[in-house]
Amino acid sequence: MRGLGELEAAVMDVLWRTSEPLKVREVMDRLDTGKQLAYTTVMTVLDNLHRKGWAVRELDGKAYRYEPAMSRAEAASAALREVLDSSGDPEAVLLHFARSASDRETELLRKALPRKRRK
């Protein structure tokens, strides 16, 4: 995920895969990084994600519960927007993407774009 470190992306994946806000321990229990992580490490990552606007949190007793600030699709769309805005040539980027799109992706794009009348 653009703009996120490896551990941040893994934590966001945990948040996106669940339907309810999670405490730090619950995120730790669901993380599959292949490494044993300290509670304070996961807590710091969640705090950073909150500070960066990727996660929202609510106090539940003495601990916070975290959930994504946006859906995975919204985050991917924002990343694509950032790429287009910073490319210097968004038209070229979009044309390259369109040429590489699968049949299914092409169909979805056609459905999403409004029909324009030809003159």
Rank of each mutant, 00 (worst) to 15 (best):
D60V: 10
R99V: 03
M12C: 01
E58Q: 11
L15E: 05
L84Y: 07
K119D: 08
V42C: 04
E20T: 15
E82M: 09
E8F: 00
R110N: 05
D60C: 05
L59A: 10
L15V: 03
R17F: 02
R2D: 06
T33R: 06
R30C: 03
G3I: 07
E91W: 10
D47T: 11
M70D: 10
E6D: 14
W54Y: 15
T44C: 02
V83P: 01
E26M: 06
Y64Q: 03
A101W: 14
L31M: 07
R30Y: 01
A63L: 13
R72I: 01
K111W: 10
D89G: 11
R2P: 09
R115H: 13
P21C: 06
L49F: 03
T44Y: 06
R115K: 15
M43P: 00
T18R: 13
R25F: 14
R117T: 07
A75F: 02
Y64M: 03
L46H: 07
L80E: 10
D89E: 11
L109C: 05
R51M: 08
E67I: 02
L109S: 11
E105L: 12
E74C: 01
R110D: 05
R118I: 09
H50M: 03
S71L: 04
E20A: 12
R72M: 02
M28H: 04
Y66V: 03
L46K: 06
N48Y: 04
V93F: 07
L94I: 15
A78Q: 13
E74P: 00
K52W: 08
A38I: 01
L94D: 08
R72C: 00
V56Q: 08
F97G: 14
D103T: 11
L49S: 07
T41A: 03
A92T: 10
L7P: 10
A73T: 08
Y39R: 13
K23D: 07
A73M: 09
G5K: 11
V42W: 07
G53M: 05
